[in-house]
Simulated assay, not measured.
Amino acid sequence: MTSPSPAPTAAVPVQEHLDPRVPPGEGSGTRPRRRAARRLGVRVLAVVALLGLWQLAATAAGNPSFVPAPRAVWDQLVRLSTTHEGIRGYSGSLLVEHLGMSLRRILIGSAIGVAGGLVLGVVLGTVPWIRVVAEPVVTFVRALPPLAYFSLLIIWFGIDETPKLWLLAIAALPPVAVATATAVHGAPADLVEAARALGASRWDVIRDVVLPNALPEIFTGVRLAVGIAYSSVVAAETVNGVPGIGGMVRDAQRYLQTDVVVLGLFAIGVSGLLIDGLLRVAERRLIPWRGRS
């Protein structure tokens, strides 16, 4: 006698998400998109709130030479980006040309400072007696404000491009040198000894062991150096700095054109954010292991 076959049961759908907080039907990419949308919304609201506070401050001040309204700064943006009533931009150069000249100076000066800082940092981190002698000098230069030695650079090199580039290079060198020296000096001793035991030369150890291990700290120093050079551009362009965004700001300050000054500050800040974003992207590409165990 055969037993009756069991009655067919309805298929139970497999729950796609084990997290009860996630509604059924949502994919794994939904939450990151929602978080990104929330962050974007918060930032937009913050910008709107800041613009509102700015407008209230301008209204309360009642003096556009003291606090210009957002509309006045916007009008200057339009005027300095075009040829208006026969006047081309500011002092004959458009806003983008002023910004481009400053970015060129920052790029050249930062490149010189970063290159010098890398070489000096490697030497300081690998040669103890040079570290003892030169480290106080690097710290001394890092503590000096840019305007403190800009006058000396003008005496040495004149008022053309050379003192500006030297100023930005000197401002960018110490952060890279300090970060590189610290990272190189703190390289894992076991890896260094293992490389030497395998027959690696001093240069091979530096190139294949020390520098890759120090790369995250070096990149942090590079970002700091570029930021310091960018913040020093106004000082670098105090003398014969037009065209240049810092020179434009200094020239507008003399004539109480506060709206032009604020516009120049916005141009410096926004372009600085974009440059730092590019450095972050480069950091993620060149150092993908940073922040991972």
Rank of each mutant, 00 (worst) to 15 (best):
V122G: 01
V122I: 14
I130G: 04
I130T: 10
V132G: 07
V132N: 09
V133N: 09
A134N: 08
E135D: 14
V141T: 13
R142C: 03
A143M: 07
P145F: 13
A148W: 02
F150N: 03
L152A: 10
I154W: 03
F157R: 04
G158W: 09
G158F: 10
G158C: 11
T162D: 06
T162R: 13
P163N: 04
P163A: 04
L165D: 01
W166M: 14
W166G: 03
L167C: 09
A171C: 13
A171V: 15
A171M: 09
A172V: 02
V176L: 04
A177C: 14
A177P: 09
A179K: 00
T180M: 05
T180D: 04
V184C: 08
G186V: 12
G186R: 11
G186Y: 09
A187S: 15
A187F: 10
A189E: 11
E193M: 13
A194I: 10
A194H: 11
A194C: 12
R196C: 10
A197K: 03
L198D: 14
G199A: 05
R202N: 05
D204G: 01
D204F: 00
D208Q: 05
V210D: 00
V210I: 01
V210A: 00
V210P: 00
V210Y: 00
F219V: 10
F219R: 02
G221S: 08
V222T: 10
V222D: 04
R223C: 03
